[in-house]
Nucleic acid binder design. Sequence first.
DNA 1: CTGAAAGCGCTTACAG
DNA 2: CTGAAAGCGCTTACAG
Lengths: 328, 328
Amino acid sequence: MTISYIAETAGVSIPTVSKVINGRSGVSPDTRARVEALISEYGYRKVNRRNMMELVFGELEDMWGIEVIRGVERVAREHRVGVVLTEFGPRRDTGEHPIDETLARRPACVVTVAQLSEEQRDQLRAKDIPFVVFDPTTELPDGVPFVGATNWAGGRAATRHLIELGHRRIAMIAGPDRVLCCRARLDGYRSALEAAGLSADPGLVVRTDLTREDGRTAAIGLLNRAERPTAIFACNDLQALGVYQAARELGLRIPVDLSVVGFDDLPITALVDPPLTTVHQPLTEMAAAATELALALGRGEETPQVGLELATTLTVRESTSPPVCPPE
Amino acid sequence: MTISYIAETAGVSIPTVSKVINGRSGVSPDTRARVEALISEYGYRKVNRRNMMELVFGELEDMWGIEVIRGVERVAREHRVGVVLTEFGPRRDTGEHPIDETLARRPACVVTVAQLSEEQRDQLRAKDIPFVVFDPTTELPDGVPFVGATNWAGGRAATRHLIELGHRRIAMIAGPDRVLCCRARLDGYRSALEAAGLSADPGLVVRTDLTREDGRTAAIGLLNRAERPTAIFACNDLQALGVYQAARELGLRIPVDLSVVGFDDLPITALVDPPLTTVHQPLTEMAAAATELALALGRGEETPQVGLELATTLTVRESTSPPVCPPE
DNA sequence: CTGAAAGCGCTTACAG
DNA sequence: CTGAAAGCGCTTACAG
């Protein structure tokens, strides 16, 4: 399957086919359509480049990496595009930065879970490789394409669920302020409290890292307060599992003595005892959307939306129930 | 970086450099060495092919896919080889099989977690693409390269651990007989019992699928027997988590009333309550070894070993203890 | 063993 | 908008 065969069959010259394939101007719509029809009929594919895209991770996450990969794979397969998987994180030692290798491969587009630096983004732009940032953790300049989740709405929904169950003293284990999605979840929590006419007690908000151990420590602090919270909303599922540990150590039963809500809906949360009520992030769909967007940009299409957030949903399981003796 | 630049610098003709790069004959050792030195000095790489390898999954596994990917990534990065990730499983609808796309990409080599058919293996051989089977589930013909784990030894170690704790009525929830690693684990269990002079009660072995739900059902059956086993060895961690469910439902405490051992050491097993004693499969190291092997085959090297199994190790956590009243 | 020559698939600059 | 012409990077067949 060569350009010359396509050209002969279409009754046009080789350069014309070349232009169509590379999306250049200077071809009439008619001719373009005819050539494109033949290209898809014969399954012609450029050998050198542009039938590959790249999925870049900072570090492959144990818990949710697979769901992202699955979404990217699905869409890439539909478009007959191969996916090169790259991990940036673990090595800084060798002189060459992994981004150089990504650049050298000239992928059709990049979906990046890693937070690229301004410089790295410029490098990609310079090589005309469009990219989409997956679930950005920091504020991005306008015009940088991204796909995220509705973190604020998720935090709000989780908190409202607890309020509707009758909880009044609802604590939050929040994440680091520098991580954008953590701030959004915290603000969602506050917003739900405010909407319900409840005052947010600053003493019931603890900022800590997104690990199980930090969740445990924070929960122990909260649960040892004079007026114990009846519910804890954790910024992510790992922290929520730390709350489980703390509750066990303090002899508190979930959900009878303490309701717990997490965030992320990791596969493991359905398997713990009791199964965790948590805010579901549609990671696979987010990854699929990011890939569609990146591929569209790679084809040079004008996309109406370069940034979007997909809706989170509350998955109610068994770690939440009405408080035993409603306070106040 | 072009062939002509290398040729000029080396003081040879372009065809000569081309021959060196493609590993063809008709170049003197001297010339070849000189050209190769320049190629590695300037980091010249063929654009078309052979700086990519392919990692093929049947279906991306929630629980351990990431660990495999991580091992492959690490080694591929060291060798400056990109990794294309492909998922075979979920689609049969489109006429073209994913293997065709893998073949069309002409990777330097393939590491496959999917069980390839004889025909698919032949296709790869025909295109001169070497491959290594990761953790084969069925018997492979001699000479097919593979990397697995010592399943028999793992099953033996798990069972011996229970025997050493004083257990005598040790049940096993085994996997399907057609899956090779399940048979090996079962035989390891039997072998440990025999070595300890214990008779294997066939009534204490249940064959079922490798899911949590099947583990739960099997465990309920076992725990309702007149002479209840004091320990259960499950063929994988998901089944072991099903045993946890069953124990909870029957009001049995782990490990006081029942010891449980799993197999795989999924990340989640450290997080459940109590943390699960399980046989660790070195998935990342297995993946790294498979990749080293595949890349070596791709370079046309003679490798001393085309099949190997990496050692499993027993990870003792808190789901095993001596039986409360040792039977007999 | 070496490289001049022909050729392949593709792109680019430009004349019409 | 179209394609003849020149050119690029590489490979192949073959003369020396």
